[in-house]
Structure formats: structure tokens, C-alpha cells
């Protein structure tokens, strides 16, 4: 048995080494603490949300974009803390600032950059990521090439900031130099005890790709200022389970 434990130890150390070589987890100092995502953490390399890298979000419809923006806002709020600033870059902004306060963000701490040309999004994002004063930059755009995403990854490797690329209705589906690809879809809400009206907003979070981790699909409900996992048996027959569901929920 001691032999096996030893092997496990060696494998763990090797894994950590690989992550370091990939420039991914050296910022993994847990200074941000837990994101409150519960079981999702198990999917990440090292068991914590990867910071200091670029994450990709893909939304195919406007309602998906709304759901993804909500999930993003929740992640960003953790980064911003009490008095941090955030850069939110978009060519066609639809974010309604007051609604950000539902997701624990103080809207006046978000600086919106509304650019005319999609290419400028990447330039502004790179500038933001290079700046040591910002810990998080969100950019909405449609297309991004591998080379451009590589540039962003290099920018964060120097500064330690985290970037979120939110691709709304992308035309292509190429691989990017991002640590992850997320897809967030809205799900029908369940009203409590058969009450009429719209219940707590429910979303399906799909981690389609994660570097050095295990992809998965989870369901969350937004209540009381946090995403609460929803038990699996309540899950609707949503056509999304090409990737096996994680069996355990908190």
C-alpha cells in the first residue's frame, strides 16, 4: 500500500511541475479564496479556480449571452473584492450597469470601454491585462484567432491578471490559447412550492474544455447572492449530456 501512496505522491508532484511549465498555476496562491462553486472546483487543475489566465466563454444566443454575463459577473465580483476596478470591453455593449449590482458588483467600479472596431477589443484587453492595477478584464467579441489569444495569454503571464473572453455568436470554433471554454445556458426555473411566476434564475454551466482538468456539466440556481448547485434528479431533460455528468453534488 505504501508503494501506491508513494506513486500517487510522485504523480501529484509531476502534475504540479507540468502545470508550472505551462505557465498556468504559479499564481495559484488561493489569495482569492473559494469562488463558492462547490463541486466545480474538482474539475480544475489543482482543485481551485485558475486565476492569472484567460478563460473563454461561448454564447450562441442572446439569452445564453445574458446567462454567461451573469455567471461572469459573479466570477468578476470575487476578483474585484471591495474596491477593485474592472475593465469591461465590448464593441456592442448591452450590459445594463445597475443590474450588475444583483451579482455583487458595484457597477460604478466597472469601467466600460466601448470600441468601434472588433480588433480594438483585443488591443484594449491587452493593455488592461498588462496593467498591474487591474486584476480582471472582461472582453466581449465575436472572433479571435489562436495567435491573438496567445498574445493575451502572454500578457497575463507577466501581470497575473485574469481575462475573460466572452465570444457572443462566434462564427468559427477554433482552439484558443485559453485554459478553459465555458458554455452557459439558461434553464427553466422551478418555482418554490408551486408558486406562480418566475423562480430563481437557473443556468446550466458546461465546462467544455479545461486544461489539465476534467470537463463537466453542472446546474446552478442564483439565490441569495450566490450560485447554488441544484441536485441532479431535478435536472431537466436538456440535450447537453454528451459529457458525463459529475455524479456528486454538494
Amino acid at each position: 500500500m505504501g508503494e501506491i501512496a508513494k506513486k500517487k505522491e510522485v504523480i501529484n508532484q509531476l502534475k504540479k511541475k507540468i502545470l508550472l511549465m505551462e505557465g498556468l498555476s504559479k499564481k495559484q496562491d488561493n489569495r482569492l479564496g473559494d469562488f463558492g462553486l462547490g463541486s466545480v472546483n474538482e474539475a480544475f487543475p489543482g482543485g481551485a479556480f485558475p486565476v492569472g489566465t484567460i478563460h473563454e466563454f461561448v454564447s450562441t444566443t442572446e439569452s445564453c449571452a445574458a446567462a454567461a454575463s451573469g455567471f461572469l459577473s459573479f466570477l468578476v465580483s470575487t476578483f474585484m473584492g471591495r474596491d477593485g476596478f474592472c475593465l469591461w470591453i465590448s464593441p456592442k455593449r448591452q450590459i445594463f450597469p445597475p443590474a450588475l449590482s444583483f451579482f455583487n458588483i458595484k457597477p460604478h467600479r466597472v469601467i466600460f470601454i466601448d470600441v468601434k472596431h472588433p480588433k480594438e477589443v483585443l488591443w484594449a484587453m491587452e493593455q488592461g491585462l498588462k496593467n498591474k492595477a487591474l486584476s480582471v478584464v472582461v472582453a466581449e467579441l465575436r472572433e479571435v484567432s489562436f495567435a491573438e489569444s496567445r498574445r493575451l495569454q502572454l500578457a497575463v503571464e507577466n501581470s497575473g491578471a485574469t481575462g475573460f473572453l466572452h465570444r457572443i455568436r462566434p462564427l468559427t470554433k477554433g482552439a484558443l490559447a485559453c485554459i478553459s471554454r465555458w458554455k452557459i445556458r439558461p434553464l427553466p426555473s422551478r418555482a418554490n412550492n408551486g408558486l406562480p411566476g418566475v423562480g430563481f434564475p437557473r443556468v446550466e454551466v458546461e465546462l467544455e474544455k479545461i486544461h489539465g482538468g476534467r470537463p463537466g456539466v453542472w446546474q446552478f440556481e442564483w439565490q441569495n447572492g450566490k450560485f447554488t448547485p441544484v441536485a441532479s434528479q431535478k435536472q431537466s431533460n436538456h440535450a447537453s449530456s454528451s459529457i458525463p455528468q459529475k455524479p456528486k453534488y454538494a
Partner: peptide, 9 residues
């Protein structure tokens, strides 16, 4: 990008 690109609310 021009000053009109920056917004804070």
C-alpha cells in the same frame, strides 16, 4: 480609441 470610448456610470 478616443475619449468617447470610456464610460463609467
Amino acid at each position: 480609441l478616443g475619449a468617447q470610448a470610456i464610460h463609467r456610470y
